[in-house]
Design a binder for these strands. Structure first.
Lengths: 194, 194
DNA sequence: CGATTTTTTGAATCATATCAACGTACGTGG
DNA sequence: CCACGTACGTTGATATGATTCAAAAAATCG
C-alpha cells in the first residue's frame, strides 16, 4: 500500500530510502479508502490532513453565491490533496475536495507532517521538490488565466495535462478553465473544423 | 544593508540568528542597486539569481503576440523576486522583471541558495514559511481569476493589498487583475457612485 | 431498459476589449 | 522655473467573447 509513496519520495529526492526511514514514514501515513463522490474535505471544516493519492482522482472546488462550482485543481495518482490556506492557517476551508473515482489515499496529520520533515531528510527534500513544482504550475496557471482567451487556455491544457481529458468529464474541464460548459463545447466544435 | 533580511528571517522562522549565521548569510547575499525601469530579469534569459527586496518595488510580466503586457505579480519590500519556472528548470524565462522604483536588492545565486538552506536551519525554515505563504496567495489568486468578475477581483485586491493602490499606477493594477485599463477605470467610476 | 447526467445547439444578453479622442499630470531639458 | 513631450486616466462608440436560459440529443449508470 505504501509502495507508491516510497517510489515517489525516491524519485523526487533522487536518493534511496533506508528500511528505517520506510518504517518511520509508514507509521505516519494511514491508508484511507474513499469512494467516488465522497468528500475528503468539506467547506467550513479545517483541513487537518494532507493526502497522497495512491490510486484514484479528486477535485478541489468552491461554490459561489449562485451555486456555481469552480474547480481550483484536480488530483491524480502521486499528487497531493489539501487546502493550503486552511491547512496552514488552520481556518475553516472555503473549498471542498471530492473524490471523482474510487480512491486509495495515504493521509498524514499536520503535526505529523512537520515532525516527519524534521526527522527524515528524504521526506523533507521531497516536499521541497513538490513545493517548487507546485509553484511553477501555479505561476503558469495564473499567467494563463489573466492573459489568454478560453480557447488558448484549453489548448494549453490539452498540451500540459492530456490525461485530464481522459479522466474528467468535459463540464469539469470547463470549470477548471473558468469557462461555462456551453462555451467549452463550442470551443471544441470550433477546433474540430480546423 | 543586510539587516532587513535578518529581521525577515527571524520573523518567519520565529527564532534568533546567531552571529555566525549572520556572517554566513551575509557572505552569500550580494547587495545590488537597480534604478527605476532597470530589469532584474529579461525574457529569454535564465533566472540564475533570487532577490530579496530591501527597498523599492518591481513587477514580473509577460508580453503577448499583440504586444500587450500582463503582470503576473508585483514585488515590494521583504518580498522575493525570481521566475520560479526558469529558476527551477534552468530554462529561458518567458517573463520580465522590471523595477518600478529605485531599489536595493540582496541577491543570491541558485547554487548558494541550496547550500544555504543546507547549512542554516533558520534560513531553511524561512524559505519553507515563504513557500507556504506563496502557495496560499497563489491559490487565492487562481480562485479569483477563474471565478470572479473584474469588479469582484478589484474589490478583493483593495482589501488584500491596499498598498498596491498607493505604489502602482492604475494601468498596472488593471494588468495584474487581467483587465484593460479602460475597464478598470469604469469599474472604479461605478464603485464611486455606491 | 429507463433514469439521470452530460454534451450540444440556438437565441438573447452581458461583461469586457478595442479603438479613438481628449484631458490631465508629471518630469526633464533648456 | 517654465514649456514641452510623454505617460496616464477617462469617456464614448462599437465589436467580440463568453454567459445565460431553454431545449434537445447523446452518453452513462444502475
Amino acid at each position: 500500500m505504501h509502495e507508491p509513496l516510497f517510489e515517489y519520495i525516491e524519485a523526487k529526492s533522487e536518493l534511496k530510502l533506508t528500511d528505517e526511514e520506510r518504517l518511520l514514514i509508514k507509521s505516519k501515513f494511514q491508508p484511507k479508502r474513499l469512494r467516488k463522490r465522497q468528500y475528503f474535505l468539506q467547506e467550513g471544516d479545517v483541513s487537518k490532513y494532507v493526502a497522497f493519492i495512491v490510486k484514484g482522482s479528486a477535485r478541489m472546488f468552491s461554490v459561489d453565491d449562485k451555486g456555481h462550482e469552480h474547480i481550483i485543481r484536480f488530483g491524480l495518482e502521486s499528487w497531493w490533496l489539501n487546502d493550503a490556506e486552511s491547512f496552514i492557517s488552520l481556518t475553516p476551508s472555503r473549498y471542498n475536495i471530492e473524490m471523482l473515482e474510487d480512491s486509495e489515499l495515504l493521509i498524514i496529520s499536520v503535526a505529523d507532517a512537520y515532525e516527519l520533515r524534521d526527522k527524515s531528510r528524504l521526506f523533507d527534500l521531497t516536499i521541497k521538490a513538490m513545493d517548487k513544482q507546485a509553484s511553477m504550475a501555479t505561476q503558469r496557471r495564473i499567467h494563463a488565466a489573466i492573459s489568454m482567451t478560453g480557447e488558448e487556455r484549453y489548448d494549453e491544457l490539452v498540451n500540459t495535462y492530456p490525461q485530464f481529458l481522459q479522466r474528467f468529464p468535459q463540464n469539469m474541464i470547463a470549470s477548471y478553465l473558468g469557462l461555462s460548459p456551453e462555451t467549452l463545447s463550442r470551443i471544441r466544435k470550433n477546433l474540430m473544423s480546423k
